[in-house]
């Protein structure tokens, strides 16, 4: 199993520890609270992810062909969800991300347990990350 797959697996395992959705949410909220500080000056319109009900900013930096993400949101659960994504894809090569199928997110069952607007927001976050990767392959 490569490193990317290991990162996914570890989140899926974490999620499986909780029987209750409320506890899974508590875990996501915890991730949101611990997300690295996002500089205010990066909260620009071009970093806003379209299609989310709460506002989400994503900043992408490319170094030696690897992508580094930072993000923020005014809603803590959104922040937690993007933190999940970042923890898996941060520091990966553009090629690795662009060729990933993002299917592990489905196995978490998040989509069914988010409001429809949030589920749409999650899809927008994923496509933004994928687009950033494709642009840098």
């Amino acid at each position: 199993m490569n490193d990317l797959e290991k990162a996914k697996e570890s989140i899926i395992e974490d999620f499986a520890l909780f029987d209750e959705w409320l506890d899974k949410y508590e875990y996501i909220i915890g991730l949101g609270k611990n997300l690295e500080m996002f500089p205010v000056e990066l909260k620009t319109d071009d970093r806003l992810i379209k299609g989310c009900q709460s506002r989400v900013w994503l900043d992408t930096k490319v170094e030696d062909g690897r992508l580094y993400f930072r993000a923020d949101s005014d809603a803590i659960i959104t922040k937690g969800i993007i933190s999940l994504l970042i923890s898996v894809y941060n520091g990966r090569t553009a090629k690795e991300i662009a060729s990933d199928d993002f299917a592990w997110i489905e196995t978490l069952g998040l989509k069914e347990n988010l409001s429809p607007t949030r589920a749409g927001g999650l899809a927008s976050m994923i496509s933004t990350i994928r687009r950033e990767a494709e642009a840098n392959v």
Partner: peptide, 21 residues
Amino acid sequence: GVHHEDLALVMDKMGIALRSG
């Protein structure tokens, strides 16, 4: 200090149907 959508989502998991937005 708390986003209305976050509250609605968490309370949904407690079985409570609310409207937010």
